[in-house]
Design a protein around this nucleic acid. Structure first.
Length: 293
DNA sequence: TCGCAGGTGGTCG
DNA sequence: CGACCACCTGCG
């Protein structure tokens, strides 16, 4: 970790990283594009600008993480390495999930450089409860409003810095949300999801954060799809296989499954992708969504 | 206008 | 246990 003019930078070499594929593939909601090579995002109580410098040779390629909210709270190098999933060998897993499978080979070619982010569990729980039966722009808006109203404010170095629509507040704490009434959330426009958020926060105050996929699924507003998203993005359970409308569509169009045969799809993923099911899902999801929009 | 958007909980048969 | 269906909100 190096320090330059009051900002911190972490450099990683020789990794295949595409920021657009990573941040726009639908796994996260608090990252915004600045340009091809730069994104701004909020992680915990840090607002950071991430950039790639893919100079030649490729082994010199770097990922830089620069705080624009003072000293990094998450200043541990390992934290960011883990956040960007640096310990995973993508080349190997791509080979193992795409063997004899042209669809997956195309999906990987399209989304190459995507990293599965290891995100905060509580943030994942809130985010994916909000995501149900909802669209991405509105999910993002709801999360920003929720943070603005109930989250811890983050100081920014330069007040004029363009946050690209992000609100400089952290995700609200479990305790704060647990004390709310449904009406308190009216301005956040969560609709019927407001009661899920409060009930879930109260359950977490009582029982602590969930430790297994089964415990996640006990939470209010969390069904099989949302539970698998939380498992994959918030708990590092890479065998999770969230089945949403897009995955159903791929499974139907490309692999011949009946749209309603969730069990069959799950078994197919278990057998074919195993512990890499989450990565397979994300490649397929991102690929399919791009083709229809 | 009405259906839909990265589903879930409740209710029936 | 599987098949419906209502559900907040905002956009096309």
């Amino acid at each position: 970790m190096t320090m330059t003019k009051g900002v911190y930078e972490l450099n990683y070499e020789g990794k295949d990283i595409n920021l657009e594929h990573t941040f726009e593939c639908g796994q996260c909601f608090r990252w915004r594009r600045i340009d091809d090579k730069r994104y701004i995002g909020i992680v915990g109580e840090d607002i950071v600008e991430v950039s790639v410098c893919d100079s030649e040779p490729k082994s010199k390629a770097k990922l830089k993480i620069k705080s624009i909210s003072g000293e990094l709270k998450n200043k541990n190098r390992d934290f960011w390495a883990n956040y960007f999933d640096m310990q995973t060998n993508y080349e190997n897993l791509q080979k193992s999930i795409s063997r004899d499978d042209q669809v997956m080979q195309d999906a990987i070619a399209f989304g190459n450089g995507m990293r599965i982010l290891n995100q905060d569990l509580w943030e994942s729980i809130i985010s994916f409860i909000i995501s149900q039966n909802n669209n991405i722009p509105r999910i993002k808006g709801c999360i920003e409003k929720l943070c603005e109203n109930f989250g811890y404010p983050i100081n920014i170095d330069n007040a004029k810095f363009d946050l690209k629509g992000l609100s400089p507040y952290a995700i609200p704490s479990v305790e704060v949300l647990a004390k709310l009434q449904v009406e308190d959330l009216d301005s956040v426009k969560l609709g019927y999801r407001a009661k899920y958020i409060i009930k879930t926060a109260q359950a977490v105050v009582k029982n602590g954060l969930p430790k297994t996929l089964e415990e996640v699924e006990q939470l209010s507003g969390v069904g099989p799809k949302v539970a698998n998203c939380i498992g994959l993005f918030g708990m590092g359970i890479t065998s999770s296989f969230p089945i949403d409308v897009w995955v159903k569509r791929v499974m139907n169009v490309m692999y011949g499954f009946d749209e309603k045969d969730i069990k069959g799809m799950k078994a197919f993923a278990d057998k074919k992708y195993g512990r890499w099911s989450g990565y397979a899902q994300q490649y397929l999801f991102y690929y399919m969504r791009s083709k229809e929009q």
